[in-house]
């Protein structure tokens, strides 16, 4: 059965070519492409997609906010973020908000389908810059705030931040490529869960709950 998609992208040209690209692939079915995320909840509930492709930077409401909204009622729906750069803090924020993966816009033409397959198979990408942001945010938050990462996960993050590829890391640590991917997927989830509890405890501290 074809994977059903929703697309959110404010740039009209890119949205159209993205739709064209998706419609070429018979394993994908595009349910809708929107220029903003203002009614993302209603749309996700109405169309029931298997996967959402979402631009990070959009006017009015950002993709990060939209992911947070989706996560409030759909814990498992995979969301792939689109971004121009992977070394800004938005990608990291999107992951903390619950994004399942991201794709650089310059790679859409060459890697979109691979990225979608990888995402549906439960994998997630992580560039050196993102790895570095995770590590430095752990340092910033001080001791005890390590998002509950295991020492193996931290080891992988460190290697990633040095620019080593998944393949190299697998070889170095004597584990399979899939195991590396699983670890990274788990890091994603821990970042998300931690940022949620962080928000809740903050709310409690500020007497919002």
């Amino acid at each position: 059965m074809a994977t059903k998609l929703l697309v959110y992208e404010d740039n009209e040209l890119l949205r159209e070519s993205l739709s064209g690209l998706i419609s070429l692939n018979s394993r994908l079915q595009l349910l809708g492409a929107f220029s903003d995320v203002l009614s993302v909840k209603e749309e996700v509930l109405r169309y029931r997609p298997d996967l959402v492709i979402m631009d990070i930077e959009m006017p009015q409401m950002s993709g990060i906010e939209a992911v947070r909204k989706i996560r409030s009622f759909q814990a498992a729906l995979p969301v792939l973020m689109l971004t121009v750069f992977d070394d800004n803090v938005h990608v990291f924020e999107a992951i903390r908000a619950g994004a399942s993966g991201y794709l650089l816009k310059k790679h859409i033409a060459s890697r979109l389908f691979d990225a979608l397959d990888e995402l549906m198979a439960g994998g997630a990408p992580m560039s050196p810059s993102i790895a570095r942001m995770v590590i430095s945010s752990m340092h910033k938050q001080g001791h005890g705030a390590d998002y509950g990462l295991t020492s193996r996960e931290k080891e992988i993050l460190t290697e990633l931040s040095r620019g080593n590829s998944y393949k190299l890391i697998a070889a170095q640590l004597g584990i399979s490529l899939d195991t590396v991917r699983t670890h990274i997927k788990n890091i994603y989830e821990k970042l998300h869960v931690h940022s949620q509890t962080e928000a809740v405890s903050k709310a409690i501290q500020e007497k919002l709950v």
Partner: peptide
């Protein structure tokens, strides 16, 4: 880091 990424 960027060089390694590119090489990979």
């Amino acid at each position: 880091v960027r060089m390694k990424e590119f090489a990979a």
